[in-house]
Nucleic acid binder design. Sequence first.
DNA 1: TGAATTGTGTAACAATCGGTTCCCAATTTA
DNA 2: TAAATTGGGAACCGATTGTTACACAATTCA
Lengths: 194, 194
Amino acid sequence: MARPREFDTDEALEAAMQVFWQHGYRAASLPDLLDGMGLTRGSLYKAFRDKKTLFLQVLDRYETAAVDAGVSMLEDSAAGDGRTRILALFEGLVTAVEKGDHRGCLLCTAASGAASDDAEIAATVHRGLAKLQGGLETAIIDATALDAGDRRRLANTLLTQYIGLRMLARSRLSLGILEHSVQGVADILDHASD
Amino acid sequence: MARPREFDTDEALEAAMQVFWQHGYRAASLPDLLDGMGLTRGSLYKAFRDKKTLFLQVLDRYETAAVDAGVSMLEDSAAGDGRTRILALFEGLVTAVEKGDHRGCLLCTAASGAASDDAEIAATVHRGLAKLQGGLETAIIDATALDAGDRRRLANTLLTQYIGLRMLARSRLSLGILEHSVQGVADILDHASD
DNA sequence: TGAATTGTGTAACAATCGGTTCCCAATTTA
DNA sequence: TAAATTGGGAACCGATTGTTACACAATTCA
């Protein structure tokens, strides 16, 4: 029918995610995005409508790529017991930081930034964090003998811990927290069922 | 010698803190600051040099007003035992959110935002969080019988929890976490010394 | 081959950004 | 009164923001 795209939409979206991940929604300038995605203004606006729509698509991609992957791991009984799976989640976080990844959590950055004013963005962020919350709770069932109330509370504590750590990862502040954070999480888990 | 200031420097700084607290360093525009502080460009630049210097003064003010107050409470043995003092810190946080305060933590917002690129700002943020870290550890000495290593790890866990909660407070996301977060912290404390 | 359709690239848009400089009135102290 | 300093503006800077418009290229289908 007509002229086909010269670029791969999926690759462009992946590149856009990296830019937003590093700079946040508001701080990511259009030139930043154009450079990272390797296309021009006209192509970007024709293919992705505008910056906010692009960001929403990026959030969806992040949700299926990063969040769902983490949740699958948390709920995969073949990957060890619940305790092992939860600790693996936090170990992955620390390992990423030690490798120099200071991007933190795209959802968390979006939640605290100017993006929190926007209802659509806030809803997507909420959905992602709720998924993580559910994954943690599932893993806890397999790790402790807590009743529903305590389980929910423990899941929330761990989710808060997760958010705090990814926040610290982004800050580049060396408060010596990340080094032993996995052991700290293990302490919480091991003592929760007493 | 000369004409005196018509505005109170301290009040202007307080107003500037509110603006930065709500919008973050980069997102706070000069018109935002002028409106909030109630003065004009000429006066602001004459009195506070420039935006960054103003923000550094605001950070100092936040440190002495908010951080030092929290640390004093954590270390005040007249305010109950260590456990009580730590829980009071988190209760204050939850209470503030329930009153509609969604500003979160100025230090944390600065740490994750563009401010983290600046060495001076990063150093000030680091100093504030380290103070909090120390205050928590002092309170833990009064709450548990842990050795130095475990105590440090518990302090870091609580600080991470604190940061995560203030992050959530800023996000306005209702994941049902804040409601029982104090109980969650109490669980961590009560089981830590087992 | 020719018309229709769509992507590409660039220019330009209006608005705002933080920062600076200027002027002059107002007010103080020496 | 004279010197000194602030307040309140206006004006401007170069740069940036996200967005739109338009000419041109490329591809497909009839």
